[in-house]
């Protein structure tokens, strides 16, 4: 329990240990701690940024989806309008075509009627001539009376 040179030994050891600790222990660990702290802070900031970006992107996606929907609606409406227009046009064309065909048919019918009438007239004239021939047999010469017959035919 006496005070002796142990005191000096202890003091010297203490100073040496503190020096060693100050030189080789404290700085590297402190540096690692500070660096890690910084890295963690950076990581957290990056995470925050990422979350923000994601939010922004999802908002943009919703927006563009909305826009696309609107555009699609417009396109459909336009297409419907166009279809109606096309149908209208087709209807008009068909009507025109039909009218033309009808007119053609009418003209043909008219022509046919005329031809039939002409034929009928011819036949009637021939019949009349045949009748007259039968009646007049000998006296009437077909060639001599052709002029008369033709005028007769026209009169019918």
């Amino acid at each position: 329990m006496n005070i002796n040179a142990t005191l000096l030994a202890q003091t010297i050891m203490f100073i040496l240990f503190v020096w060693f600790c100050m030189k080789f222990v404290w700085p590297p660990i402190m540096q690692a701690l500070t660096e890690r702290k910084k890295q963690i802070a950076d990581g957290l900031a990056a995470g925050e940024r990422g979350r923000h970006d994601l939010e922004l992107a999802s908002r943009r996606a919703t927006e563009s989806m909305h826009e696309a929907k609107q555009k699609a609606g417009e396109v459909i409406a336009q297409a419907e309008k166009r279809a109606a227009q096309v149908i209208e046009e087709a209807k008009g064309l068909a009507k025109e075509e039909g009218d033309r065909i009808l007119a053609g048919a009418r003209a043909e019918i008219e022509q046919e009627i005329n031809r039939a009438r002409e034929q009928l007239r011819q036949q009637v004239a021939e019949l009349a001539i045949a009748g007259a021939e039968k009646i007049l047999r000998r006296e009437v010469d077909a060639k001599a009376h052709a002029e008369l017959l033709a005028s007769l035919k026209n009169e019918i």
Partner: peptide, 15 residues
């Protein structure tokens, strides 16, 4: 126990 020796504790406190 070194710290139960006054030499050790005084050694440190003197430093």
């Amino acid at each position: 126990v070194p710290t139960a020796d006054p030499n050790a504790t005084f050694g440190m406190s003197v430093a």
